[in-house]
Simulated assay, not measured.
Amino acid sequence: MKKTILYLGNKLASKGFTPTGIDTLGPQLESLGFAVFYASSKRSKPVRLLDMIWLIFRYREQADYVLIDTYSTQNFWFAYVAARICKRFRLNYIPILHGGNLPQRLKGSQKASYFLFKNACQLVAPSAYLANHFKNAGYSNVEIIANALELNSYPFKFREELQPKLLWVRSFAAIYNPMLALEVLERLLDEYPNAQLCMVGPDKDGSLEACKMYALSKHLPVVFTGKLEKSEWLNLAADYDIFINTTHIDNTPVSVLEAMALGLPIVSTAVGGVPYILKNEETGLLVVDEDCDGFVKAIGRLLTDKSFVQNITQNAQDHIKQYDWNAVKKQWSNILS
């Protein structure tokens, strides 16, 4: 008999936002035969929370499990409220740990964190980064299940000769530090006048307009595409040679995994869970947060060391195989069966 899942998260891809766990994992679970109900696609945060509460009540007799996408910022409290209601109705709930700043949340909201995570039947972390933090904090019921990709949808391209054509893919938000990408381009142009940058993603907090104003004032060769469908940006990626990830805070960024699958050499800040998926000098290059000089130096190395690029992109292709849905789905089946 198939299990019924209630999945709580920010299902806002249809509203122009970047797809999140609920947008990808939900359909994957449906493909395994689970009946999945979702909350919520409401744009307003208060209305979205109310919708989640209503769906928990509505499916309290049907749901075998409640999956809760759990973040470290304001949406942490959505998960906490949901957990309270699940506990009231004796529902099995599973927080899926997404927030790169959750280790700080464990310290800053100790009572709420204890209730949310101790009463869960299982915790799921996408990498050892959060799993280790939670285990060290006394939460032993953590299983690592990677963010899954359908790897056959990602055409790997070996780049014979790199050009200074940079690609950045993320929501425009202060925590992802998009302005640094423009500063890197500005510095790179001093040595590589043909350098260019493409930035893909929707605005989240006004950062997109600030970036556009900066690029205009500095006459930088940058393209802002806004939000693209996955198939669109995957096709676009074939025209670029280096992927940069400038974030201040992160857990397991899917865009970095996708860049690895596409054969793009990667330069990223060494923050949060990034070093757990991107090994410096092995599958990419890591630099200190906010280090513009470090980014420029790393990009210069990629542009001048062909054999190094070949090694790290091949290593990345081998590493990414463990994130394929065919490798991950057995873990979800075991937890939810």
Score class of each variant (00 low, 15 high):
K87W: 11
R90C: 11
C121T: 11
C86D: 05
E282C: 12
S217D: 04
D293P: 07
A39K: 02
D203N: 10
H133F: 13
Q28A: 14
K212L: 04
V271Y: 07
K135F: 07
K297W: 01
H319N: 09
A181D: 06
F78S: 14
V254F: 01
S217A: 13
V200Y: 05
L208D: 05
K11P: 06
K165V: 07
A181L: 04
T252G: 00
K157M: 13
E232P: 08
I335M: 07
A195N: 09
Q104W: 10
F295T: 03
N10K: 15
Y154R: 04
R88D: 06
Q331P: 01
N92K: 15
K279E: 13
A259L: 08
R43D: 13
P275C: 10
L149I: 03
L286Q: 09
S333R: 15
V222N: 02
L25S: 08
V274D: 07
N101V: 05
P103T: 01
Q163G: 12
L236W: 03
I96A: 05
I68T: 05
D69A: 14
D51W: 08
C86N: 04
I56K: 08
L32Q: 15
R88P: 00
R58N: 03
P221Y: 02
L50F: 11
Q62P: 07
K3G: 08
L336W: 08
L50E: 10
F134E: 04
N141Y: 03
D318T: 13
D250Q: 00
I244V: 09
L32I: 11
F134S: 08
G99W: 01
S113V: 07
S268I: 11
Q196Y: 04
Y114P: 06
L55E: 15
E281L: 03
Q122H: 11
D305L: 12
G226H: 05
G100Y: 09
V36P: 03
